[in-house]
């Protein structure tokens, strides 16, 4: 194709919004228990990540790893791949995210999640809140059925958004390794939603910009580079 300039984003979208949102309805009705379980696990992980102190780091990482595995196989492969040619190209990235999260969980000193009270923490908490609570219900305002809700833990977009939130809530030199895959997916999701005339397209796009900004800010403030104190490293027992 020598005339790439003549192609627009819409030329690469091969499915209709009707079919896209039906994916979530079909998945939610077919895999109801798994979908609810993934969401509840995400809520528990969010609760742990937003607390003061650094409790439950391994639990959070294991939950996120399992959730990404479920999103990769359940949603991306089973449902999204048949209609979107992009999926086979990004799926290895999703698998890499699963492995990375599992590797972090297995490390002696995994990432430390916790409320720090800085700007990145606020943004991270906001991302998690939007992914868990707001994202699923946006469709209601656009006339879609509740059964078409995109839920954190099963649908790719809110899971990627929420994962960026978890990463921003974390400390650890290598946390940036977890950023590229959800970041790239948020860009793809934003482009897809924008072509489908969905106003929520702005959310993953803003999330990308804020994540990049917060990563830069944290690097500058030493959040990711400063060695943690012994007190920070020891998990509180109370």
């Amino acid at each position: 194709m020598s005339e790439w300039w003549s192609y627009g984003l819409a030329d690469f979208l091969l499915f209709s919004p009707r079919v896209y949102f039906r994916l979530f309805e079909t998945m939610n009705t077919t895999w109801g228990l798994a979908v609810v379980s993934a969401l509840v696990a995400g809520v528990i992980a969010a609760g742990l990540a937003m607390r003061h102190g650094h409790r439950g780091n391994r639990v959070i990482l294991v939950v996120l790893s399992l959730i990404w595995a479920w999103v990769s196989y359940g949603f991306m492969w089973q449902y999204y791949q048949p209609i979107n040619w992009v999926v086979p190209y990004v799926l290895p990235g999703f698998v890499a995210e699963v492995v990375l999260l599992a590797v972090f969980a297995a490390r002696p000193l995994p990432l430390r999640f916790g409320w720090r009270g800085d700007f990145s923490s606020v943004v991270g908490a906001a991302f998690i809140g939007i992914a868990l609570v707001v994202y699923p219900f946006v469709g209601l305002f656009e006339g879609r059925d509740l059964m078409q809700a995109e839920l954190f833990g099963s649908a790719a977009d809110p899971t990627a958004l929420g994962t960026l939130g978890f990463v921003l809530m974390a400390r650890g030199t290598w946390r940036w390794l977890l950023v590229p895959v959800p970041l790239i997916w948020c860009l793809i999701a934003s482009a897809t939603l924008w072509v489908m005339d969905q106003e929520i397209a702005i959310v993953p796009l803003v999330a990308v910009w804020l994540t990049v900004f917060c990563c830069w800010l944290d690097l500058k403030n030493g959040v990711t580079t400063r060695r943690m104190t012994q007190a920070e490293l020891v998990e509180p027992t109370d």
């Binding site: 499915f15 079919v19 039906r22 994916l23 079909t26 999204y80 209609i83």
Partner: peptide, 13 residues
Amino acid sequence: SWITFNVGNDMEL
């Protein structure tokens, strides 16, 4: 069949 028939595995569609 461009776009209109790309309905994946959704049996209803």
